[in-house]
């Protein structure tokens, strides 16, 4: 188990370094990445913004799957996977919500467009998952995990809406660049995919570590509860 985490940590570090180099490499550097003509270098925020969003979406789907499994089987492992995926998903979604406005300012001239459905729905989705985490942290009821699983299923309904909103609504947000006839330069697509691989690897590493931490925490909590029961019965 420890060896697996070490290997994943090494792979993640290498991938992140390569991804960062490719994302910043000038066109005349070895394996350089072309610079977008209209936006210039600031377009390279795309290599962090988009893979972070994809990773967050994926983690929210893992959260949905684990929540359904928990509701059906009442499996503690599924409950932990749901908690961990939501937590790490919120971290990646926070990156999306922070890097987006930093990209929008020089390109659109504003930090945030209140009429843009993609921006608003992403913020609402983030708030739903933050509420889910707050609920899990503050509530000590025996049915917390069940309520949280239901909240996560409702929250997951937002994920496809956020993802497809740019297809169905006219927004300032850029259209998809890979699927549906996107016009992304193949060299840029490679850099985008390398960055996504690096972020997926990072997400996997963090989820694995956080899962083990949660298992240990629950074991400690159970032992403490047993100890205090024994103390009172003495």
């Amino acid at each position: 188990m420890k060896r697996g985490i070490t290997i994943l940590a090494v792979v993640t570090s290498i991938l992140l370094c390569v991804a960062l180099y490719l994302a910043l490499a000038q066109p005349d550097w070895p394996f350089g990445t072309p610079t977008e003509r209209t936006m210039g270098y600031v377009q390279r925020i795309f290599y962090y913004h988009v893979p972070s969003a994809w990773t967050a979406f994926l983690l929210f789907f893992v959260n949905l799957g684990a929540s359904i499994v928990y509701l059906v089987r009442r499996s503690e492992k599924a409950d932990i996977v749901a908690l961990v995926s939501a937590e790490v998903g919120v971290v990646f979604c926070t990156v999306v919500l922070v890097t987006g406005p930093i990209w929008a300012k020089p390109v659109w001239g504003i930090w945030w467009d209140a009429d843009d459905i993609r921006l608003q729905s992403t913020l609402v989705m983030w708030l739903v998952y933050v509420s889910y985490l707050i609920l899990r942290r503050l509530s000590t009821s025996s049915v917390t995990a069940v309520i949280a699983a239901v909240v996560s299923i409702l929250g997951a309904l937002l994920v496809p809406f956020v993802f497809f909103s740019i297809w169905f609504y006219r927004t300032q947000h850029p259209s998809p660049v890979i699927a549906h006839g996107g016009s992304l330069d193949p060299r840029m697509a490679v850099v985008l995919l390398v960055n996504w691989a690096a972020f997926l690897s990072l997400a996997g590493l963090v989820c694995w570590t956080r899962y083990r931490l949660e298992v240990a925490k629950r074991e400690v909590d159970e032992t403490q509860a047993l100890e205090s029961l024994m103390e009172t019965s003495r």
Partner: peptide, 16 residues
């Protein structure tokens, strides 16, 4: 490139 917009790029990567 000494483009002033580079500060936004650096800020976004640092923020992440």
């Amino acid at each position: 490139n000494p483009d002033p917009h580079n500060y936004y790029l650096i800020a976004a990567y640092l923020a992440a």
